[in-house]
């Protein structure tokens, strides 16, 4: 997708991840990479595919405001 906007992993459940996009939370059903709470990630087709450094993710999110 062209929507490469990062979200923050705020919860890791037994079989899903909760990703926070500031105004809205979304659920990802799987992850292709190791993630922990607090990581900034990109989700595609409900799967976490990529981790983004926090500082860079914040720059992208700043553009959004």
């Amino acid at each position: 997708m062209c929507l490469t906007i990062p979200g923050k992993v705020i919860e890791i459940k037994k079989d899903s991840f909760v990703v926070d996009y500031v105004s809205e939370k979304r659920e990802a059903i799987a992850s292709a990479i190791d993630v922990k709470k607090g990581d900034y990630v990109i989700v595609s087709n409900k799967i976490i595919i990529k981790k983004i450094p926090e500082q860079n993710a914040k720059k992208i999110l700043e553009m959004l405001q």
């Binding site: 997708m1 062209c2 929507l3 906007i5 996009y21 500031v22 105004s23 809205e24 979304r26 989700v43 595609s44 087709n45 409900k46 553009m63 959004l64």
Partner: peptide
């Protein structure tokens, strides 16, 4: 076109789509 592709994305919240 592009905007309809953005609209059909199910992963992204509305404010992200709006941005895109």
């Amino acid at each position: 076109g592009h905007n309809s592709v953005v609209n059909s994305d199910e992963d992204s919240p509305e404010h992200v789509k709006e941005f895109c």
